[in-house]
Amino acid sequence: MELTILFYVFAALTIIPAFVVVFSRSLIYAAFSLLFTFLGVAGLYVLLSADFIAVAQIMVYIGGIMILLVFGVMLTKQATDVEISTGIMKTLPALIVVGFALGTLIMVLTGASWTQIGTIPQIEGTALELGELLMTTFVLPFEVAGILLLVAVMGAALIARKPKEVQS
């Protein structure tokens, strides 16, 4: 009972800011609304007993991606006083893409065989199992992802660095 109410609270917390993201003309509002959407999704993960993913969601999306987004938006408008156009444009291509995505989603939704488990099994500590799997069965993908991120960080640092002035 309480869990059902909580589900609807978190669902509302996810969907209402998501509408703001889509319909708001202000980029900064859209970026900050994402914060609440991410929080709501984290709450839904907790209700699904996926505690590790829930915390990782907060860590990665709110602590990382959202901050980066807001920084980007802030530097464009507030710091340089350049208005970013957020009007409606290119209606036809957008409609085609959105229609295609919606069609695919509906196809998957209706095609999937939904089965309901009576109660969600209580899982004690997903972190331990996840850690063991990452260090044994999936150690190669894990390490490859690590190297990929390292390369990305080094690339970003290289691009951001001022080129050394050549002494003539």
Partner: peptide, 24 residues
């Protein structure tokens, strides 16, 4: 929580969002 410390790290990043929000 079994993830206590991880949660602690994650939730403190919300404060960063609040600070940017206030500043902007």
């Amino acid at each position: 929580l079994n993830l206590g410390l991880f949660y602690l790290l994650a939730i403190s990043s919300l404060n960063v969002a609040a600070i940017i929000m206030a500043g902007w």
